[in-house]
Nucleic acid binder design. Sequence first.
DNA 1: CATGACCAGCTCCCTGACTT
DNA 2: AAGTCAGGGAGCTGGTCATG
Length: 510
Amino acid sequence: MGRDILKDRSGKISGAMAVLLAIVVILLYTRVASTPKGSEDTFYFVYGTLKWFLKALDLLKYVEEYLKSFEEFLKYVQGTELWPLIISILALVVMELAVMGAFYCALVTVGTTTRVLGFVSEVRDNRKKFHDPYGKSRFSVSKIVAAVGRLGKLHRSKSYAPNPSIREKVVKLKKLPPWRRLSTTEWWDLGENQLITLKEGVLRHLIMEAKKLCPTKLAPKGSITKLAERSGIDSAILCRAMNQEDYAMTVKNIKKLLDALHLSYGELTPYIKSIGGGGFRESITNPKLPFDLYNEDGATLVAAGLKDGHVRKDRTIFEYINYDEENVRRVIESVNRVFGDVTYQMRYDEKGRHKGVVFNSEAIGLALHRAGVPKGRKTEQDYHLPDVIKFGDIAIKKSYFKQYIRDDGHIDYRGYLISMINAHEIESSIKSDHRELFDYLPWKNRKEQFGYYVTLSKWVETRIPSELKPVYRDFIINMKKTWIPDIVKEEKAILERTFHVKAKIVPKQI
DNA sequence: CATGACCAGCTCCCTGACTT
DNA sequence: AAGTCAGGGAGCTGGTCATG
């Protein structure tokens, strides 16, 4: 386990010895040193002594290779926030509620004290190749031309060449567990009215082949009418698809066509040129099908969707709102890496400032939604930490939390604290005696229309009459324990398990 | 039996504005 | 300021019907 983590990070560390050494050294170092600067000197002193000691015992030669790797590992983490090694994470849960006609907002801070390995550090250039535990199959000769060729006799044409990047991506879906299947979106998972444009000539070719399978007395070489009848596609559509250049067909109809040809849907994947809808057929060109969110970019997008972004309820569109252009750019890049060449619109507020971005393609919103990003207002519904993150490897988890921190968090470098904020509605859970408290809370007015809020602190408690203090404590405990949204509990668990840190949930504001 | 005309219905593009 | 909801116009296919 430990070894995996080390290996993951540096790709060079190996052997139990290195791990043991690391543990011993770190223990000594945290024990002896109290300030970051002093600790560095102490560390090298201890480490040097240890090395000298090994040499004296003539053991150095056996471990030299491991030590070398270990030193490289140290060099690697030195630049990151791992170095002082203790980073605390505070996650804040903001809860909102409506009381007495007006809306009061309840903010709960989820605090997480933690120790995170290079957590805050930027994504490294040496981005690791994603490791798929289920293995990948090569897209061998099963080109669609060959497949169709089995049915009739065909010759190959250059334009049918599958997209080379897709060859690498074909995953054996049958073996995948349900959550993994959901984090992967195939073209046939898209809405049935989504439009698929195939590479030049492919659609016509498919229809011609299908037509050959449908001879009639009047048309012994195959009839469109008969094919229409057999496949369930309207004859007018087939006719147009055959005669029009670049005709885009709906997912629904392409499925019907492939069924008629007895071809598996996956065979068509490499021949898809673009995906879109009625308004615009090229929302996504050169789609990287299947759209796979089980990687670092996917994790970034899932976090972006759960925090500063959202998936529109009525149209399943992914929108990301963030005034930091850098963040927006990063999200766009991740979208491009996961989905292909994607169209989008920047959003500006009334003052003309860059506010965020909207990705118009329904496919993107759908893929995120399938992976676990809820649609619509997140504060008012229960949702879970998506399985992609829960079951993802350490790189995926890091990527997720990095994006989380960028969106709804901040880092206190001096205190080695990371805070993450999460808002949630608690109005439906509070009891009537809790409401009595509200008369005594020091509400502040946040510009008229925003309503009132209280920042919870020790001082607030002193203002509560003593007979209501137990009620107040009960209220706070509820906020800390029972009213916490599932996702926050799960995030806390993941942080603690993965990064061996202490996470604290702290009610912050009402 | 194949296809053109036509409009219904859908998604996308773009923008505005409301809620918390 | 950070999310969320809303909707019109554009552009495209689906489906119906008529025509040759």
